[in-house]
Design a protein around this nucleic acid. Structure first.
Lengths: 350, 350
DNA sequence: CCTAGCAGAGAAAGCGCTTACCGATCAGGC
DNA sequence: GCCTGATCGGTAAGCGCTTTCTCTGCTAGG
């Protein structure tokens, strides 16, 4: 018990011997293969396998078959509800297809993202899904693209989430449109002096939401001066500090839009701490509709994204085109995901 | 471009040829193996590998070596912040050791949990970490234990989180102690008429927290009648409905303790909807200290668990004893995790 | 009754990698 | 100058599985 006796797991060979059949028959019996197998034999093999507690060694199977059942998912931060909801969708859809999901965390760091992709390629995953990629425009962009292209060249499929990454498939979130609609809705509620807390400029998703929001405001004749745009990092703390910065600047503002909910929560917290009641003095809006924002006070106005579906779609987008090569049109085929503006207590009519 | 030309990835063989050395030399050059390799050769191999964009096929490596670099993590629900924080810790610690994490979701379903464990064994993971296991006391308990025992017999390591699962290693959370301390603290704040919303009885963690809480109350001479204990399912919605049920029963209560924060959030929501201001009419306390509870109003009294650390510890507990077989005492060695009672606005002094 | 034809089991050749084991080369000791 | 013993490439035997191909044993048509 102290020294791990560690007999190795039963192998197919063991099963075959136990059942008194050949290796080939055992293999065929166990994975509903093309070739027929005498039902009586099949029975015996299955029983033998059960008796021995045998489970196919997926690695060996992968190397023999030359293809795996693995999906690699890269996220910036798994503890962020945005990503964990997406992950839930991916895992769910994957397990429906008998695929297994490997998750890696990039910590919003482009270098690390690249390294992670490289490392994950060693797993020869069928699919690689990138959510919250930070590489756009960074020094690593070309390398990342190269790595992914070569991954696809060798039979893999890649899917981006939210970011349109040109030759690669993407579950496109209409960030621009969603943010635009939000802006229009807020304008019609009477907001006029707006500030935005956005993400790092390398993150396309942040930029798109910012642009869309600005466009919506412009349509309503509301300006968005550059000094009202604050760059933060998608974290609650970033939203918090961004707000403090904003308040310190003395700008007179009646609305703060944070490009994701996590930061918006930080905004609310900072406002409150500064003695401003969010929603009364200053309205607050976010983006994503993570669960938390319904529960804080005031509940946050935001743009709802069906995050689990997004994850599911990403997987299907990737494996789907593996299944029926030919059906899907362009690989970047924009999968339209519906977003919805949700007005809550944090932005009452002014 | 339409038909995936799909040349397969470069193999070690290719690298060896490109570098003009043998397969063995190539292999040895690429993974700092025991045997020395002439530096000049090594160089050439490394360069050749780079030129070809070669990455070791981990599967092949695993089957050749007979051991993998995979960690399997089972969680009830990855979108639940409790689990996603733990996952973050596991992933972090794993990547430090060059291990890759596979996540599977059991959806709080014992049958599915068992199936998942079985399926994951096919991956021959080095380590299997179970968080939020539901199997205790269920019809599947014996099967699960059998599966895990046989997994350990064949060289794997298993680690449970929170639940003490006897022969297996556990990152023990002092649920009883934490809940007891909380109860005492709340009693000293003046609460007397308490109700508890707990989880399903099969989940040991829930039971322990309930017991500890009851014990703490008892110490202070406060009863906890059975009809004040409501069973829910750890979800926000469960907490919400449990509270409605409680209110409908007409019980006069001055405190609701939910055994996890997610449910506590539901409690707050239900109270508010019933026109009761949480913290004024009725105090609310939770457990876990997930990020959200600091941001809702009132901020929630809870018991803080360093969840990321818990995840990290789980991994280290498992791999650690792999590294230095002999150092670790009993496999179930209780790794003491400090929890801390945090009183916030949801339970003001009465 | 003979031969064609078809199941379907088994032998064996891999999949990409690691790792004994072998053997050539070279340095040093007597 | 010959022998011993390191040192370090290369050869080849696996790891556990799939799959092609061979070959046996039938059934059925003429």
């Amino acid at each position: 018990m102290s020294a791990p006796a560690s007999k190795s797991p039963a192998t197919l060979h063991d099963v075959a011997r136990e059942a008194g059949v050949s290796l080939a028959t055992a293999s065929r019996s166990l994975n509903g293969s093309t070739r027929k197998v005498n039902e009586a034999y099949r029975q015996r093999v299955v029983e033998a396998a059960q008796r021995l507690g045998y489970t196919t060694n997926l690695f060996a199977q992968a190397v023999a078959k030359g293809s795996t059942t693995t999906v690699a998912l890269l996220v910036a931060d798994i503890a962020d509800p945005y990503f964990s909801s997406i992950a839930a969708g991916v895992i769910d859809a994957a397990s429906e297809e008998g695929l297994v999901v490997t998750i890696a965390v990039t910590g919003r760091n482009a270098q690390r993202e690249l390294d992670t992709v490289r490392a994950l390629r060693g797993q020869r995953p069928r699919v690689m899904i990138l959510a919250g990629s930070r590489t756009t425009g960074s020094a690593f962009e070309d390398q990342l693209r190269g790595e992914l292209t070569s991954f696809e060249d060798t039979g893999g499929k890649v899917a981006f989430i939210s970011q349109d990454a040109a030759p690669f498939a993407t579950v496109l979130l209409d960030n621009r449109g969603g943010a635009r609609d939000l802006a229009v809705a807020l304008a019609s509620l009477g907001y006029r002096d707006v500030a935005v807390i956005t993400g790092p400029p390398e993150i396309r998703t942040a930029e798109e939401r910012l642009e869309g929001f600005a466009a919506g405001l412009a349509e309503c004749g509301i300006p968005l001066p550059a000094d009202r745009i604050i760059h933060a990092d998608f974290t609650r703390d970033g939203g918090y500090r961004g707000t403090q910065e904003l308040l310190a600047s003395g700008a007179s503002v009646d609305l703060v839009f944070a490009v994701n909910d996590v930061m918006a929560v930080g905004v609310v917290s900072a406002l409150r701490e500064a003695g401003i009641v969010p929603g009364q003095g200053i309205g607050v809006a976010g983006y994503d509709d993570i669960p938390t924002v319904r529960d804080i006070t005031p509940a946050l106005t935001t743009v709802r994204i069906p995050l689990e579906d997004v994850g599911r779609r990403a997987l299907q987008l990737a494996t789907g085109s593996v299944h029926d090569a030919g059906a899907a049109p362009a690989p970047g085929e924009p999968a339209p995901i519906r977003t919805e503006t949700i007005i809550r207590g944090s932005t009452p009519r002014r």
